[in-house]
Design a protein around this nucleic acid. Structure first.
Lengths: 213, 213, 213, 213
DNA sequence: CATGAATGAGGCTTCATTCAT
DNA sequence: AATGAATGAAGCCTCATTCAT
């Protein structure tokens, strides 16, 4: 039926426009944060009419959140394969951790700008968004805790408050991400740091596996 | 001279007005972040006229930065006494770290709201303010590094990349501060966590000083 | 010819769409007046596309006026039979008046909502529409005047300024219509009022045919 | 105190600005109805800034209603003296009615444009305003009813349904006001009509006091 | 110095209208 | 003929800033 064809074409056109807006939105948010840009900055960059924005998003906030959800989905996907083969020895665990971090950093490298955007500007959007970000971080903490608990159960790491340690691990991770996002660290350095960080997490700065003088 | 007296009185009144604005500013920023409140919200809360604001600050940002500088000064003051007696054994170092964290947390407890304000909303003010915050965090990293280097020199902790470890330490600290600011942790819990965190930092989750199974 | 058949079918479809729009227009105008509804409210209710509106009407006003003209035609039709047998005695006149009002009110009852719509909102559409409504009312005045002049000629009512009296009669009519449209009067009350009103018009509140104390 | 002087001056200035806006608002509403003019039309005519409008009124509607309330107060004031000496004979009643109408028409003549504005455009502002206008008209009906009941009690007019008659009287009044506002009637004619109208109301078109042929 | 009324540029949002399909 | 996505002009409203008192 011609009507169906018409509808399909319309939908495709609409989806394309939506994508232009998302792309343009990401670009201007990355450049100017959340509060800086006006709707008109987004539509100008997307090369669509002012009114078109409102056919797709009810507010700047909604577009912002859509971008966030997209990134989050990508990040979470990276962890799916990791639940399959839980490590069964300390060394396996160490290797798995290093690999997990490398995988995570690879996606972050791809979406560096968005990462920076959300880490810096997400908390200031509004209370709700801020809380959403906290929840997201906590889900990373729970992920770390899951592995740690597993390792403790199998007995190849010492017993500890896994919640506290997991929080600490995420804190460490975030700090390096921030440094890298800042430009203090370049990508190569980040890569070579992964092992150092894992060692610190496993053995602390006072413990063994360091070269004692 | 009467003119001088007059001037002194004027100055006192002016200073008082300035304080009212700072206080009111802090309150509304805490409630609504940096971008939320209007100048009128601040002057209304301060119970001064609209024009009065501009006699003391040229913009909302300037008031915000003034508050930040004030808090920073307070925090930095807490670290002055710590440089005086550097620890000379691992256990002393551990005790000193615990004490330092307790001292730091005491001031944070006092200024909890402002801490939350700046951590959440500082990075979104503008690029300059964001960079200022990064510099501030780095100065904490350097402080940690100073102690760690000292301990490494004296040989009672293993050799490691002290920059990396210090960054990690600050990352851990921030994470717990965030948790506490969030309300996920209450003040008592924060206190009791200090030792656990220090242990983790000294020995990691795999190293000794934990109860091995 | 197949082409002709096709054309006829097209025309029928077009007419149907036009009717949907008229119906939907009436409904939303009744609910929200003239200025309230947007074109999109009309097309949504009619369940036709946005562009379709413009194939049938050039503007909201045109649809509105089309509805008005339709109602007016209906109303005017009710008066055609009345010109045929002009009354030839006071009592006949009184009976004819009562019957005319009853006939008029029957059509108004059917189209109550539209009546309310035009009485309330017609004058605010624009100067032209307002004037059109005045002309319409005046044609009712002229109708009343025609009967009154006839009765005066035949000598069974006293001489008076028939223009003035006719205006007054229409004013009275309108007032009760308004009361009824308001909900102040229900339909039954309106019916039973007809005689009272006619009595008042014939004899005033001071004249005979009332029960003098 | 200088502060008090200052406040008084500020208040005076503010009140003056408010008056400019009311005057300008009345002018543009009279010219273009309620829905026609934009806020900017009002502020331009008032020669104040766009933002100034919102310091005094929250919306066009509010200014409109303020104007209405002002006029209503004026009109109602005209009736205060009439409650003092209720008429005690039919002729007194007739004279009092004529005088009352003349007094009312004098104020209407002064505020002709506003009258037209509200009668034409008030009902279309929104449901609430429309209902407010109905209530206003009803209060005029009640006023008429009060006099009529009084006359009936004293026995110099026949018994009738005073509510119905009062509604009719107001209807008549409105109709002539509309005619006059339209320009169909000029002021002189309106004046000379008052007696005719009163006669019609008292005796109807069929009753006595007319010249029977 | 403090005040607060006035200002108007700036951004948001709506919605009548167009037009490619 | 019907459709509905896209458009952008138009109007609303806010709020930082000025300035006369």
């Amino acid at each position: 039926m011609s009507t169906q064809k018409r509808k399909a074409a319309d939908n495709a056109r609409k989806e394309q426009t939506r994508m232009r807006l998302l792309k343009a939105g990401a670009e201007v948010f990355i450049q100017q944060g959340f509060h800086g840009p006006r709707i008109s900055d987004i539509v100008n960059r997307a090369e669509v009419g002012q009114g078109t924005f409102y056919r797709h998003f009810s507010s700047k906030r909604e577009l912002f959140e859509t971008l966030f959800d997209g990134l989050l989905e990508q990040l979470m996907l990276q962890f799916q394969p990791m639940t399959e083969n839980p490590p069964s020895s300390l060394d396996q665990y160490r290797q798995a951790s290093i690999q997990a971090l490398r995988r995570l950093s690879s996606i972050m490298i791809q979406e560096k700008d968005l990462m920076l955007l959300f880490l810096r500007h997400g908390p200031s959007v509004d209370a709700e968004f801020s809380s959403k970000m906290q929840k997201t971080l906590n889900s990373f903490v729970q992920l770390a805790k899951f592995y740690l608990d597993h390792a403790m159960e199998l007995g190849f790491v010492k017993k500890s408050d896994s919640e506290v340690v997991s929080q600490a691990l995420v804190g460490i991770g975030l700090r390096f991400v921030e440094n890298w996002l800042d430009g203090t660290l370049n990508q190569g350095q980040l890569d070579s740091l992964v092992e150092k960080i894992v060692d610190f997490a496993f053995y602390g700065f006072a413990g063994s596996r360091g070269e004692l003088p």
